[in-house]
Design a protein around this nucleic acid. Structure first.
Length: 603
RNA sequence: GCACCCGUAGCUCAGCCGGAUAGAGCACCAGAUUCCUAAUCUGGGGGCCCCGCGUUCGAAUCGCGGCGGGUGCACCA
């Protein structure tokens, strides 16, 4: 049996990519030069200077760290010298001769251990500026993703209460990553897995029942230990009372539990969606764990895995390292995750016969794999311990039909909340937690989102309210937004004085302006690299660099009026500068859009 | 005990599929505003990239072993 028998009939994604869509007229300069270096190497092969068939994966074409080295640098000679049986310098000399043939190259020099530094004609950069203008909001988008579908599952918070700050980072990172993947030419499904089937939502139903009786006038007193005490269930109880009267006030649990659970979960999801909307987050698909189970898909998964001898009835091992006092071996259906590198086999059912979270999750991931070419899950680092088993499950269940579905789990590390330097401890049980909604209201959506994206996901983060609010001026989000606002202000002022941006005389732009263009031209490769690494924070750092370069340039005008964007007595230079300003604004706007942060026009 | 993540300037962090002299913000010091919004800019000091060994033309980056911090470790999700 080649395939699991429970496929869902989701259509296989179109893998043809976007080749039938007209190519963008101009290729961003960096990818164009990667192609040029490639062609130059081909020429050396044709001339017999270089053996054929060498792998070029390690060859890079990128801007050197030190701008004084030139516009572009390639390590091709160093990387290929050894496999070619020659030395870097000889190879570099030959390569330089090839590259110098290009009109766009004004100089090609060998430097250091064998780098080749290229300087490009100003016209190349000015052309890139026109490319930005022509592409507008599409500049930076590419089709490296080839139109393949990536399913990004993020947030997936339990539907037992409002979103709190423990969910925030994963929500923002997941959302920004989804946007980034879209920009890189993937179709993206933004998905939320609703855990509406386990013990937690039964607790929710019981908690709602207490509030229901309270709404009917009963004095319920303290919410019993083990139930959710939060006030947010009060309106749920009222709605239940309004809908059902006192029909279930004294009825046995079996009569109302499932019903109340359904109602309460629905109410929680309304609340959660509203919370997410405050952050600008909207999912495409909400998958219900309860529906998945009811559909029989999980049973089918188990049956298939048993047929492969990947699920067996076995005895649960004691956890490694520390054996609990009351440890008792239990016979359970176990998935052979050890076969895929996990520490021990994992139960897919509990002793009462219901599915474990993992048991259902395994079938859920198979379901997702049916509708996507790749899967990405964004999880909090507190779930790191379960990564191996789910990766094992996906490895076991996909690829049997020859169609590999890459699956990555991106962990976002914990966020420590601080208020005036004191750590804010959150406890679900006591109902004491910092909600997402309150935080967004307090510090603003843009600050929350940008702040969550100013660290790589692997690093822990402190979120200090005092710092975020009081130190407004230092917050990088304002720095970037201010750059955009300044540009808008300038464009408007220019228009008021009768100037219009124009590409007609871009050759009037000087060295300082070209430096800015070089930085802008990096945007497409930044987007590609960030998408490939699944690291949206890189865009935030890049935007900070762009803003910084812009502010520096802007301030040149303090001492040198001839360097201002608007030079009243010189219409042609003003038109060219405003054209530049407009493209800087475009890049900032495009970048902020990926992060879901507003590009404000005034501050 | 085991697994995963982190360790870079006084503080908070970028850089890490090997590349040229290791960067930014904050803080500190000295400056810039009759002038496009100073929510900005310019300059300065500040570093055994946790330690050791290895891989190689080259290591903050890769491998191994330590040390320190975080997170998790039965039928919770």
């Amino acid at each position: 049996m080649a395939n699991p028998g429970f496929r869902l009939g989701a259509k296989r994604a179109n893998r043809r990519g976007m080749s039938d869509i007209a190519a963008t007229p101009a290729v961003p300069v960096f990818s164009a030069f990667a192609a040029h270096v490639d062609a130059a190497l081909d020429a050396l092969v044709a001339a017999g200077t270089l053996p054929a068939g060498l792998k070029r994966a390690a060859v890079t074409v990128e801007p050197p760290r030190d701008p004084s080295h030139g516009d572009l640098a390639t390590n091709a000679a160093m990387v290929l010298a050894k496999p070619a049986g020659t030395n870097p310098r000889a190879l570099a000399t030959a390569l330089v001769a090839e590259l110098e043939k290009l009109d766009a190259v004004t100089s090609a020099e060998i430097a250091g251990p064998g780098f080749i530094n290229l300087r490009l004609a100003p016209a190349v950069w000015l052309e890139e500026l026109r490319t930005i203008a022509a592409a507008g909001g599409a500049y930076g988008r590419s089709n490296v993703g080839g139109g393949t579908t990536v399913n990004v599952e993020y947030v997936s918070a339990n539907p037992t209460g409002p979103m709190h700050m423990g969910h925030c980072r994963g929500a923002v990172v997941g959302d920004a990553l989804a946007s980034l993947l879209e920009a890189a030419g993937h179709k993206v499904v933004r998905e939320y897995y609703v855990n509406d089937a386990g013990a937690q939502v039964q607790v929710l139903a019981r908690s709602a029942h207490v509030r229901y009786r309270e709404a009917l006038g009963e004095a319920v007193g303290e919410i019993p230990e083990g139930l959710y005490p939060g006030d947010y269930l009060v309106p749920v109880g009222q709605a239940l009372a309004a809908e059902f009267g006192d029909r279930y006030a004294t009825a046995p649990e079996s009569e109302w539990l499932a019903l109340f659970r359904t109602r309460a979960v629905a109410a929680m999801m309304v609340m959660i969606k509203a919370d997410l909307a405050l952050l600008g987050i909207h999912h495409d698909v909400f998958s219900s764990e309860a529906e998945l189970q009811a559909s029989g898909k999980v049973d089918e998964a188990e049956a298939w895995l048993r047929a492969q001898d990947l699920v067996y009835d076995g005895e649960l091992e004691a956890p490694k390292g520390k054996t609990p006092e009351d440890w008792e071996p239990v016979a359970l259906p176990l998935f052979r995750s050890t076969k895929f590198g996990d520490d021990q086999d994992r139960p897919i059912k509990k002793s009462d016969g219901t599915w474990t979270y993992f048991g259902a999750d395994l079938a859920y991931h198979y379901q997702k794999a049916q509708g996507a070419d790749a899967l990405v899950d964004i999880w909090g680092a507190d779930h790191a311990g379960t990564v191996k088993r789910i990766k094992a499950a996906v490895a076991a269940m996909t690829g049997n039909d020859g169609r590999e579905v890459p699956f990555e789990v991106k962990l976002v590390q914990m966020v420590k909340l601080l208020r005036d330097g004191e750590e804010v401890k959150m406890s679900k049980r006591s109902g004491n937690f910092v909600t997402l909604a309150d935080t967004v209201r307090e510090v603003g959506k843009d600050v929350v989102r940008f702040t969550m994206l100013t660290r790589k996901p692997d690093a822990m983060m402190d979120f200090d309210f005092a710092e975020v609010i009081a130190a407004k001026k230092e917050n990088p989000v304002f720095y970037v937004q201010y750059a955009h606002a300044r540009i808008c202000r300038n464009m408007k002022k220019g228009a008021d004085e009768g100037f219009a941006p124009s590409a007609a005389n871009l050759d009037l732009l000087g060295a300082e302006e070209l430096d800015l263009v070089r930085l802008l031209a990096q945007f497409p490769r930044q987007v590609e690299a960030a998408a490939a690494a699944r690291e949206p924070h890189r865009i935030a750092f890049y935007l900070h660099d762009v803003a910084s370069a812009f502010h520096s340039y802007y301030n040149l005008g303090n001492d040198r009026p001839d360097k201002r964007f608007i030079v009243s007595e010189n219409e042609t230079i003003t038109a060219a500068r405003l054209f530049l300003a407009a493209q800087i604004g475009q890049i900032v706007r495009n970048g902020l859009a990926l992060l879901g942060v507003a590009a404000v026009e005034e501050m």
